[in-house]
Design a protein around this nucleic acid. Sequence first.
DNA 1: ATTTACTTTTACGTGAAAGTCAATTTTAGC
DNA 2: GCTAAAATTGACTTTCACGTAAAAGTAAAT
Lengths: 128, 128
Amino acid sequence: MNKYYTITELTREFGVSTRTLRFYEDEGLIHPERRGRTRLFRPADRHLIKEILRGRRIGFTISEIREIIEVYKDPPGEMGQLQLLMQKVSVKRDDLRQKRRDIDETLAELDNVEEACLTRLAEIGVGT
Amino acid sequence: MNKYYTITELTREFGVSTRTLRFYEDEGLIHPERRGRTRLFRPADRHLIKEILRGRRIGFTISEIREIIEVYKDPPGEMGQLQLLMQKVSVKRDDLRQKRRDIDETLAELDNVEEACLTRLAEIGVGT
DNA sequence: ATTTACTTTTACGTGAAAGTCAATTTTAGC
DNA sequence: GCTAAAATTGACTTTCACGTAAAAGTAAAT
């Protein structure tokens, strides 16, 4: 047992290229095992990839993602580092909340666009 | 009356560079007036910039933003175009909803990180 | 008149995040 | 054991969204 995934299985599941996953490894985001030179991805890697892609979708940079991952791996033991981290968390939180507002506003605008479309369609529809 | 803004006024207000605003003009997102060669921004331009930056924050590309702006300027009169547009709107909406979920999940994770930090701080605090 | 503070255009540069291509292995299926 | 499919590395290329530097024009204040 102890399931392994090949790289292409994961590229298919997540809709990314092999280059992308290798890139993430080069960048130190994931550390798949090896059998010879071939990468073997464990469920934990798969899960991590999922989180990386989520971070990517909301606009985190690779190094921001790496930073978060490393905090999970080993949270800083030193006082100053901890405080710095907490500041960053706070900034990120504000950033994400702003993004949420932006999204909500944009969703509302999309509703407007759609309504305008429907109106237009009705006009045209009647005319023909 | 009829207020004008200079380019640096706006860069200061929005925290972007002059290069950015000129770039947006090159890309056809804004069309400030001119006195001689100097750009004069009207309130409408200012408002548009605000929307551009909002689009940017949630990860729209320049051409996506341009597309939205042009829809506002003149909504397509042709049936096929309208339907295409509505499809795009629908896709965008799904995309934004996904992003909102991503954000909520990440906010929850940030809470975890913060709690871990606080726990750590307490441990260290007690020890010293 | 000169300084100071902006503003302009043109053009090349940059960093992030991959994409693409080529030239080898490696592995799996028979 | 062979061959086709899959995986590897490495180098080069691309796209996006500006940054940066140079050279020059404008405008108001001193």
